[in-house]
Design a protein around this nucleic acid. Structure first.
Lengths: 349, 349
DNA sequence: TTGTACGCGTTATCAG
DNA sequence: CTGATAACGCGTACAA
């Protein structure tokens, strides 16, 4: 009832030729006039622009690209959208990419190497000029990363980076911050401190665990068999782990968690079991989510500069693409900050 | 040190011509062979494929598009990434779009009409074949929506839809669910019930408010001046509104909140003021976030089918693009469900 | 079965 | 100052 007929093919836009024939001049002149070049008569310029407006002319970027041989597009591969971390990083990327006049093709690997590989190929087929990637927790498609780089498509890793590939990377200093977070608990006077660790294959997991262990060692704290429990990235695992500990009656005084969701899951378990945080068990999260401030008690957490991470990664990639020769691969380590809140305050001290 | 020289122009891919000259045959034959067409010698086919592989040939999608005159790309405009709602919707969209062999260009309007308009133009310039949009809370670029539709680029609205444009839309029945949520509080025996409403210009705000008011009227509840407070979408506003009420000592028994963040902000204020939820003030949220289950008390909330909303919207758009004539504009109303949790249980009853 | 020639929309080169 | 022509990479009607 309301719709104009709409063939399966795209609507025909006005082209240079349309304007040219309407004005009985050549397409070349039209092209030059529209590009506002010096070597064209002011009067023709005026007429052409007028006609262009009249016909609602829009330049066809696809034709331009065919000629320029660059797509002005960069690809992005993130594992998932289950927390706000990646969406916020993407906001940062978008900002830089827009400013640089590039476009962004966003894909999700759903945490599997197979989908990641498919996405990489998709991006390659679309002639992206570079790729930003945060790898899956299953592992790396290292061979393909290298292949892409060798074939001239630069890659910048962020957050979850490849350990084997030489390329620009953007990370936060997980080790140092995990170390600090653990020390914070130690200095607060907690003794039996545990760590809920992330997915085993991730570099960030290893770094945070290393930071935890080193801090414990430095202060000569005992590390028992259960001191480090692998709990993954989602809240239900933190919940289960804490339930398990409580039911075994093996209560830590404090737990440094891999991330906020895990910590929040643990918090839920603590409350359900009639215990109190931080009185009975103190908690520290990681990678600050909005919720950290909203729960009761507010959660101590390490705040990652997510938006900035996106900006920096995008800038590094665009430098790789546009500069000749490209800058050497550097690893940028962003500094995070710890927001100390009630969940890690030692009330007994 | 590790990088091959990399001009500002894209790496030269092997083309049909490269294969043709290498094999001393015509590009046409190569093209046909690679397309696996019947009218080409099996042997030549084999040789061509071999050579293609050897040269690592990748068809140039840009050239194809120039010819086909369709970009196989659809555009998406969302307001922001501040909650997980849109990221999850996007996951649903991605799924359908991938299956249909389309690509997705994602943009954010940052809740301003100006950026939204810029994004729409960007998408148009990139020859997207259709647009999915959830409008800003500032208002609508109605004229431009219509212009796009008239010029042959179909638009599908989802979640936050245009009120003036005739086009396919996907919504949830906010009115009905707000009505139910309010009735739930009424049936639970709460008397003084308030509503924290969303941004004024949004249709969803109006619908939810209308549902609230109608339910109140149906059960002859008094509606005072402060019964409906505008609090926006973020937690801090819910926090402030609740603080204000408590400090004015104008305590509602229950509040139906525009969304979960608002409710969680309100919850924080309640606790800070030494009150209890649901004992002193009960809460109901909307659009279920992961946090609803994690806070204490767990928050009653209306669970929107976010992923499904993305799927449905994408399917509608692809139907508009590929079917001739396109289907009439329909408004799909998805059903949501209420998850009743402790925050709205009347302990005195 | 294969090759030739053209068009998609644009810009660059060269000639006038 | 302007016009004709080629080229970007691909597909395809038409001719051989």
């Amino acid at each position: 009832m309301q719709n104009v007929s709409n063939t399966a093919v795209m609507k025909k836009y006005a082209t240079l030729k349309d304007i040219a024939t309407a004005l009985k001049i050549s397409t070349a002149t039209v092209s030059r006039a529209l590009a506002d070049r010096w070597d064209v008569n002011a009067e023709t310029k005026r007429i052409v622009c007028e006609e262009a407006k009249r016909q609602n002319y829009k330049p066809n970027p696809i034709a331009k690209r065919l000629q320029n041989r660059h797509s002005k597009t960069i690809g992005l591969v993130v594992p998932e959208f289950k927390t706000l971390f990646f969406p916020i990083v993407i906001s940062g990327i978008q900002k830089v990419v827009d400013e640089a006049g590039f476009q962004l093709l966003i894909t999700q690997s759903q945490e599997t190497m197979e989908v990641e590989l498919r996405n990489l190929k998709l991006l390659e087929n679309n002639m992206v000029e570079g790729i930003l990637i945060s790898i899956t927790r299953e592992g790396e498609n290292s061979d393909y990363y290298q292949e892409l780089i060798d074939s001239g498509i630069p890659i910048v890793f962020f957050n979850r980076v490849s350990s084997s590939i030489v390329a620009p990377k953007v990370i936060i200093d997980d080790y140092k911050l995990a170390f600090f977070a653990t020390e914070h608990l130690i200095y607060s006077g907690f003794n039996k401190i545990y760590h809920f660790a992330g997915p085993e294959k991730l570099a960030v997991t290893k770094e945070r665990k290393r930071g935890f262990l080193d801090a414990m060692k430095k202060h000569q704290r005992e590390i028992s068999e259960n001191s480090v429990l692998t709990t993954g990235v989602y809240s239900d695992k933190g919940y289960e782990a804490m339930k398990m500990l409580i039911q075994k009656n093996e209560l830590p005084q404090a737990v440094f968690c891999f991330n906020d969701p895990t910590a929040l899951g643990a918090l839920k378990a603590i409350k359900e079991e009639g215990l109190k945080c931080p009185d009975d068990i103190a908690l520290v999260g990681f990678s600050e989510t909005e919720m950290a401030q909203l729960v009761d008690p507010p959660l101590t957490s390490v705040q990652q500069p997510s938006f900035e991470m996106g900006e920096v990664a995008a800038r590094l990639l665009i430098a790789q693409i546009t500069q000749n020769p490209p800058p050497d691969a550097e690893t940028v380590c962003l500094t995070a900050k710890m927001n100390i809140r009630k969940s890690s305050i030692n009330v007994k001290k």
